[in-house]
């Protein structure tokens, strides 16, 4: 899960200067994750991991870092 989400974020959503140095606790919102990016990310997570993520849980706390995204998805598997 970790690698799939990381690849999607670094290749499709956020243009990072050095993707290799991207860590699981880096702040994605500070790195440029915008509204369209968040929507695409959630759709990717739902489709790839077969979960439905509740709309009332769409908050910075669950999306700010790769680790938090993984925890969020795990709670709904």
């Amino acid at each position: 899960m970790h690698d799939q989400i990381k690849t999607f974020i670094t290749q499709e959503i956020v243009q990072l200067e050095n993707p290799d140095s991207f860590s699981s606790d880096d702040d994605l919102l500070a790195a440029g994750l915008d509204s369209m990016g968040i929507m695409r990310l959630i759709m990717f997570l739902e489709k790839t991991f077969g979960v439905t993520l509740p709309d009332n849980e769409i908050e910075p706390d669950n999306i700010q870092t790769l680790n938090r995204i993984i925890q969020w998805v795990e709670r709904h598997r």
Partner: peptide, 14 residues
């Protein structure tokens, strides 16, 4: 705000 709009969009989609 941005988060409210995203929440709403997914609420509508659901």
């Amino acid at each position: 705000g941005l988060w409210k709009k995203i929440k709403f969009a997914f609420k509508a989609r659901n």
